[in-house]
Design a binder for these strands. Structure first.
Lengths: 256, 256
DNA sequence: CTTGACCTTGCCCCTAGGGCAATGTCGCAC
DNA sequence: GTGCGACATTGCCCTAGGGGCAAGGTCAAG
C-alpha cells in the first residue's frame, strides 16, 4: 500500500495538499498502519487524480466535494465547469488585448466619444496643457455625475462648433501665460460671461446638481497658473453680478 | 474631487480594494479633506485603471508596485506578462481538453501502454473483476516502484503472448468463484508454481526490491474471494517449498 | 432631530496550500 | 545499539486579494 508521500509523488502534488484534502473532506482518510501512518489503496490515486483535474480547472475545493453524487448531475456540473473555462479563456484573451493597448499607450478611461473629442482638440489649436486639464475634468465629471456627464459633454462638444465660442475657449487656453494684471483678462472674462448668459441664461446645465463641478474647474485652473486664477476670479465675480446661480463653497474641504 | 466610493465605482472596484492598494503602496494616499475623507484627483483614476488592468492579468500586486520605473523595463515587463497570459490561456485549454476526457470517462492514470494492455484483456476472456484488480495492482506498482514498474509490466504483457501462461492467468481469474475446498485449486497452484519456476527460476523480477508487491497481490486477492485466498495460500506454500525467495511480512502493518 | 448613505480604522474570515517546529518511525550503515 | 537521513505525524502561522463586520464620524435631506 502507498504512503502519503508515494501517493502525492505519483499524482504530482505535495503531501500537504493530500492532508488538506483530507481535512476538507474531499478525500476520505485511509486506514492507518500500526505506527499511525496513512496507507492508501489504488482507489485513492484515482480519486486524487480526479480531484486534481477539477482543481486545476479552477473548481473550488468546496464545490468539488459537493460534486460526486449522481452521474447526470455530475455531467451537468462538468458542463458548467467547461463553460466556465471557456469564459475564463475569453476573459484572459480580452485582458491580453487590453494589456496590449496599454502597452501601446491607447488606454481608454473616458467614453470613446470623449476620447475622440479630446483627440481632435490639438487640430483646433488647443494646447496640450488645456487638453490635459479638460481630460482630468471629464474624468471627474463622469465619475461624480455619470447621469449628467453625457449631457454636459454633448453641450461642450457642440459649443466648439460655433467659431466664436471656440475662439473664446482658445483665448482662455492661452490666458494661462498672461500676467494676472493684463487687462486682456478683463475683456476676456466679460466676453465669456456674456456668451454664457446668451447660451444658458442664468441657469447653466448641471449647476443645480452639485457645486463640485465649477469648484473643480476653479481649483484646476487656479492651481495651473496665476493668469487662469485671475481669469476664473473675474468670471465668478461677473457671473455673481449677473445673478448666476453659482453656489460657491466657502469651506476648505475641497482643497488640493 | 472624488471620494473613495466615487473613484471605486467609476473604475469598477470596491472601496476596500482601493484601501488595500493604499496599504500596499500601489496607489499613493491622496490628501484628506477637513473631515478626514480621502479626496482623489483624476490622476488616481488613471493610475487605478492601470493597476486593475495589470491585476486582472494576474500580475501580483507586489510586482505591480515594482513595475513603474523606466519605460523600457516597463515594456519588458509588459511583454513578460503578455507571455504569461498566453501560457495561461494555453494551460486552460489543456485543462479543458483533459476535463472533457474526464467527462467522457477516458481518464488516464497509468501509462498509455498499460491502459492499452488493460483495454485488450476483455477480448482475451478476462473478467472485469480481474482487470480491475490488475489495474489497481499496476497503479500501486507504478507509484511505489516507478523504476521497476516498466520492466515488470513488459514481462507481464509478454507472458500473456504465451498461450499456456495466458490460460493459467485465465484459470486464476475464474478461480475467484471456486469453493476453497475445490481440488482444482490445488492443481492450479501446482501449475502456476511450475510455470513460475520455469520462467524465472527461484528469483522472480522485483522480488529483491520490496516485499510489498507480492504482499499487495496477496491482500488484494484475499480480500476478493475465499477461492482466491485459498489459491494464494497454496501458491505461497509451494513456492516456499521450492526455495523461492519470497520474504513474507509477518507483522500487521499492511492490513486493509 | 433623525435617518440613511457615506466615510474612517481595525479586526477576523476565506482559499489552497507553503513552511516551520517538535516529535515519532523506518531502514540502512557502522 | 547507535546514529543518520528520509519520511511520517500534528499544530501553528503565513501568503494574496480582498469580503464583511464592528464601532464610530460626517453629510445632506426630510
Amino acid at each position: 500500500m502507498l504512503t502519503i508521500g508515494q501517493l502525492a509523488r505519483y499524482v504530482g502534488v505535495s503531501t500537504k495538499t493530500v492532508r488538506v484534502y483530507h481535512a476538507k473532506g474531499l478525500l476520505p482518510e485511509p486506514e492507518r498502519d500500526s505506527s499511525g501512518y496513512r496507507r492508501y489503496s489504488a482507489d485513492a490515486v484515482v480519486e486524487l487524480v480526479r480531484i486534481r483535474m477539477l482543481a486545476d480547472a479552477g473548481v473550488p475545493l468546496a464545490r468539488i466535494r459537493e460534486l460526486g453524487s449522481t452521474p447526470e448531475e455530475l455531467a451537468d456540473a462538468l458542463q458548467q465547469i467547461d463553460a466556465g473555462l471557456t469564459a475564463r479563456i475569453k476573459g484572459l484573451r480580452d485582458t491580453q488585448r487590453r494589456l496590449r493597448k496599454l502597452a501601446a499607450g491607447e488606454i481608454r478611461i473616458l467614453p470613446a466619444n470623449v476620447e475622440e473629442h479630446l483627440a481632435g482638440l490639438p487640430a483646433l489649436g488647443f494646447t496640450d496643457r488645456w487638453i490635459a486639464m479638460e481630460r482630468d475634468l471629464w474624468i471627474i465629471v463622469y465619475a461624480t455625475h455619470p447621469d449628467l456627464a453625457d449631457t454636459l459633454f454633448q453641450d461642450q462638444a457642440q459649443s466648439l462648433t460655433d467659431p466664436d465660442l471656440r475662439n473664446l475657449y482658445l483665448a482662455a487656453d492661452h490666458a494661462h501665460d498672461l500676467d494676472p494684471d493684463d487687462p486682456a483678462l478683463i475683456e476676456l472674462a466679460d466676453r465669456i460671461v456674456a456668451a454664457s448668459i446668451q447660451r444658458y441664461g442664468t441657469e447653466p446645465p448641471g449647476s443645480d446638481a452639485d457645486p463640485a463641478i465649477p469648484d473643480l474647474l476653479q481649483n484646476t485652473l487656479n492651481a495651473a497658473s496665476p493668469g487662469w486664477q485671475r481669469l476664473d476670479s473675474l468670471i465668478r465675480s461677473r457671473m455673481a453680478d449677473a445673478g448666476f446661480t453659482l453656489r460657491t463653497t466657502s469651506d476648505d474641504s475641497h482643497d488640493g
